[in-house]
Nucleic acid binder design. Structure first.
Length: 553
DNA sequence: GAGTTTGAAACT
DNA sequence: CAGTTTCAAACTC
């Protein structure tokens, strides 16, 4: 197994050496409260704070736990530590409550994700505390968070778009990062989203001031940059007026990013200075629906295939998590989340008169399968919608996908789709994916992560069939089962009663994806001994197949 | 740019 | 769980 440890080490150490330390009034809050500091990591190690909290919660009442943990940690690869560190805010953000709750019933979505920071021999068993903001940075962190987090003692909250979780990969340059991180340090806010990191000082100051940034017409802005859907920092350019950007109405909030300069929101609380509010709100929403912040579009993947066919990638195999409920738009406008996500409708959808060009609910073949049919549909759509469609929407033609869905569709990379598998590996086995992969994978395929996380405990024990049933959003189980028919997949219900339907592979797969499971099987190629040691199998297989690396196991 | 439409999210 | 309201994006004019 090839560890890209250099990257990690660099990411970890650079800030410590080169970045001027700025007192983090918030970041070191935990330490300050008790005055206990782990000499080596105290200022940077959130996990330490976490450990302290945990020790206190558990009645240890002393810093011995901290010291031990720090000692242990000091012997670990710093990269691994960092990975733990990046899981944000839980210790600081009322985590105690959660952890307490978790002790009692473990029912809370984040109950079993409290970082177990330094599990000897399995240091990466840091489980993400929450499926929201934290996860979003799984990929990004290797390029950004590490430094940010280490220096500030807090974490960066940022999540790429659910639709385009990969956007940041290309847009974020290391040197940009450096600059922005330093600025962040100056601001002392300690928590920033990528937008901030890339914005200039005025942006930071604006954030600090907490004032809303109203510029030109939001619509203009949105239009101007619409093709990209988001700016490269991940900002959604929301225009919220009443939600305070603390509801899922807010695209930024829903995407797990802070509102930033491009936004035209009012009374915005989705800013670093309201970090606590944001996280608490997220927690609340997650408690209602653990998948609330999961990407809406599930993209089954075939890493190998996509590596070579990335440009041919179509949304055919992807599905909206819950399905749409369109009544009037015929799933031909961006009102439709499926259409917006560049995926076809599925049986999960409750849409009426579905004419989704990416694939109709009734089982019409996806675009790449039936060009003719697609053309007909396009004609139909054009007739019905008249010129209502903008250029982007007219690009429903698969050959024009990148016009309309440059990010959501064409930015797909093998890694992006691999991510769920990786997450699975992380969660189930505790093995930390290679940093190199993480570095590359900026995707916040967070849906799977979240989904899997919820079942991380059962994952190593439960039957696959149950897994598949428990959360149909996770395509892995279907694959794991191997012989399970998608049709037979049991529709799952999300905790909030909303439907979370399984991806429908069987009926709409393109020739390329025929046997749809192949899409995933390559991510997690085989599970011969799932019963015995599922997690390790998954982990090993993940590395083997997805990264073309020799299995470590 | 204002107003309307739309459907998801939130609420009851 | 269904119905209603709220909300903000998408869309139209």
């Amino acid at each position: 197994m090839i560890f890209d440890s250099s990257t990690e080490l660099e990411a970890c150490e650079v800030p410590a050496k080169n970045v001027p330390r700025v007192e983090q009034t918030e970041g070191v809050r935990d330490q300050d409260e008790t005055g206990h500091r782990c000499r080596v990591f105290s200022e940077n190690c959130e996990n330490q704070a976490f450990i302290k909290d945990r020790n206190q919660e558990m009645g240890h009442g002393s810093t011995s736990g901290i010291s031990i943990a720090c000692k242990i940690e000091s012997q670990l690869q710093r990269g691994m530590r960092r990975r733990c560190l990046n899981f944000e805010g839980v210790p600081e953000m009322g985590l105690q409550n959660d952890s307490t709750a978790s002790h009692s019933n473990g029912a809370h979505p984040t109950s079993n994700i409290l970082p177990v920071p330094f599990k000897a021999g399995n240091p990466s068993t840091c489980i993400v505390p929450g499926i929201g903001l934290h996860l979003n940075t799984l990929g990004l962190k290797d390029r950004f968070l590490s430094r940010e987090t280490l220096v500030s003692g807090q974490r960066l909250i940022s999540m790429p778009s659910p639709i385009c979780p990969f956007h940041s990969t290309t847009g974020l340059e290391p040197h940009d990062k450096s600059l922005s991180v330093d600025k962040d340090l100056v601001t002392g806010s300690g928590i920033h989203n990528l937008s901030i990191m890339h914005d200039d000082v005025s942006q930071s100051s604006a954030l600090i001031s907490g004032k809303d940034l109203h510029q030109s017409s939001p619509k203009k802005k949105r239009r101007k940059l619409e093709i990209g859907a988001e700016n490269r920092e991940g900002c959604k350019r929301c225009n919220c007026k009443k939600s305070k950007c603390l509801k899922l109405y807010c695209e930024c909030f829903a995407a797990g990013v802070f509102c930033a300069e491009p936004c035209s929101c009012q009374s915005c609380f989705n800013k670093p200075i309201h970090q606590e509010t944001v996280l608490n709100t997220r927690k609340q929403i997650e408690s209602r629906n653990p998948l609330a912040f999961a990407p809406k579009v599930i993209r089954p993947s075939d890493p190998d295939q996509e590596i070579g066919e990335e440009l041919n990638k179509t949304p055919a195999s992807a599905r909206h998590k819950r399905g749409c409920n369109c009544k009037k738009s015929s799933c031909l406008k961006k009102y439709c989340e499926c259409y917006q996500g560049g995926v076809g409708c599925s049986v999960s959808c409750r849409c009426e008169g579905c004419k989704n060009a990416f694939g109709r609910k009734d089982g019409s073949l996806p675009i790449e399968d039936e060009e003719f049919e697609q053309e007909e549909e396009q004609k139909d759509a054009n007739l019905n919608v008249s010129d209502g469609l903008d250029a982007g929407e007219q690009s429903a033609d698969p050959t024009n996908d990148e016009l309309q869905y440059p990010e959501s569709v064409l930015q797909l990379t093998p890694f992006q789709v691999i991510r769920p598998s990786m997450d699975l590996a992380i969660l189930s086995s505790g093995q930390t994916p290679l940093s190199s992969s993480l570095t590359t994978v900026t995707s916040a395929s967070f849906n799977s992560f979240a989904t899997l996380r919820r079942f991380e405990m059962p994952l190593s024990q439960c039957k696959l069939g149950k897994l598949a049933r428990v959360d149909s959003e996770d395509e892995t189980p279907a694959i794991l089962k191997g012989n399970v028919s998608p049709i037979n997949s049991v529709k799952a219900t999300s905790p909030n009663q909303k439907r979370v339907s399984p991806p429908q592979f069987g009926t709409r797969l393109s020739p390329n994806h025929k046997g749809g499971r192949k899409l995933i099987l390559k991510s997690i190629p085989s599970f011969p001994s799932l019963n015995n040691d599922l997690s390790h199998e998954i982990s090993a297989n993940y590395y083997d197949s997805s990264l073309d690396m020799p299995s470590q196991s």
